[in-house]
Write a protein that binds this DNA or RNA. Sequence first.
DNA 1: CCACTTAGTGTGCTTTAAACACTATCCATG
DNA 2: CATGGATAGTGTTTAAAGCACACTAAGTGG
Lengths: 238, 238
Amino acid sequence: MTAIHTARDPRFPALGVAVDVVVFTVRDGQLEVLLTRRPDEEPFPGAWSLPGGFVRPDESADDAAARELAEKAGVEDVFLEQLYTFSAPDRDPRSRVVAVAYYALVSADKAALGARADGRTRAPQWFRVQAESEEHAQAFLPGQPPVTLAFDHDEILRTAVQRIRGKLEYVPIGFQLLPPHFTLTELQSVYEAVLGHPVDKRNFRSKIQKSGLVRESDAVKKGPHRPAKLFEFTQRTF
Amino acid sequence: MTAIHTARDPRFPALGVAVDVVVFTVRDGQLEVLLTRRPDEEPFPGAWSLPGGFVRPDESADDAAARELAEKAGVEDVFLEQLYTFSAPDRDPRSRVVAVAYYALVSADKAALGARADGRTRAPQWFRVQAESEEHAQAFLPGQPPVTLAFDHDEILRTAVQRIRGKLEYVPIGFQLLPPHFTLTELQSVYEAVLGHPVDKRNFRSKIQKSGLVRESDAVKKGPHRPAKLFEFTQRTF
DNA sequence: CCACTTAGTGTGCTTTAAACACTATCCATG
DNA sequence: CATGGATAGTGTTTAAAGCACACTAAGTGG
């Protein structure tokens, strides 16, 4: 039990533990991810990267991820779940950093607030996610080529997209991406954005209704066309 | 970029990253887990715990898990996958240690070799896993009460049992727990041990055969009764 | 009032899951 | 060598779930 709090103990080499958070939202039928710009210094000067930071001595990685999410995206109490831990010795060229990656699902209305709530650092920005095949996922801004992310963040993003696609089919995470009241068409649009392909309207609606996860509210959403019934979730638990 | 290799940098507090491996096998129709005994010193002197150790400076957590598996269980080239990262600040009462947990599936024939291959430390031992409900999983030796594991290893074990049960239903991990040639009854027994409940013989056999994952070999397993055809996997990839 | 746009609804077919019981083959024993 | 004991092996029926598929309804704006 001697001197374990110095960097010389072989069990405690100089090593940091960071969290990186893949924050997803769906806006206008498109899956989007929140990215931050790195400072103009090595490594990856000015590159886009996932929001993240070091885990503090008194917090768990879960806490750190929630804190990062609040700081960078300005949202709290959203769906946040551990994704995977990335630990290649050279994933950070400066020194050893192990990254515990998380993914979060944020409704577009909350997300809009978050993206401009940051004052100290450069504002994070929403990028669209392009993921036709299962093996690739890239972030891009409309009309521009995909960006290459810093560190191994492209791999983390890819892993996160695979995860939410797989999870969407058997756990009700689609609801996390919508405001409290929503139309079934909006919910379907979220599913299509996450899955990356269209789904059948009638099958989708009957399956959702049969699941008992949503309840019809008495309000309707008016627009230039036929009004749509607004629904709400029957359970508010994660 | 100054002095990041000392323990004084706030981003690099004294902190260790360890791996813990939940090594499963199935023997005699029972799911078993490999446990090691802790040394007779604080914390948890003499308690049973999952095999594990610190990640070395030049290896990834995946590498470290494979190394631990080779050292403690004496097996290589087995199914090994990351489970979850446990990071509560006080999970190790001595100092901060973040644990990247893995789970491994080992066939009973290989596992038997491993359990006695260790010379330096006390030999690890196989414990049965009792997990009637989804929420609980405990390790015990036949005829004895369940043991309480060191640190948060009971929680890790529980998480691992949930994971393999969920995964068994849609990915072919059952094969990892058997020797190259096996009977369908043996395979069914593995499924039943992992799931914790019996399955229907005819439905199981027809589903397995239709899946195309196994191929009939020309050998049979002889016993005191009707011989059973031996099967093998059609794919040897993880 | 007409054109446009989105909301909303049901049926038939195919596939998959789940329940269920008997015959076949080998060995050991008397 | 006949019998009993133990495990291997095999199909059908029913219910539920997935999937393809096209028209009517209800608003708005010109």
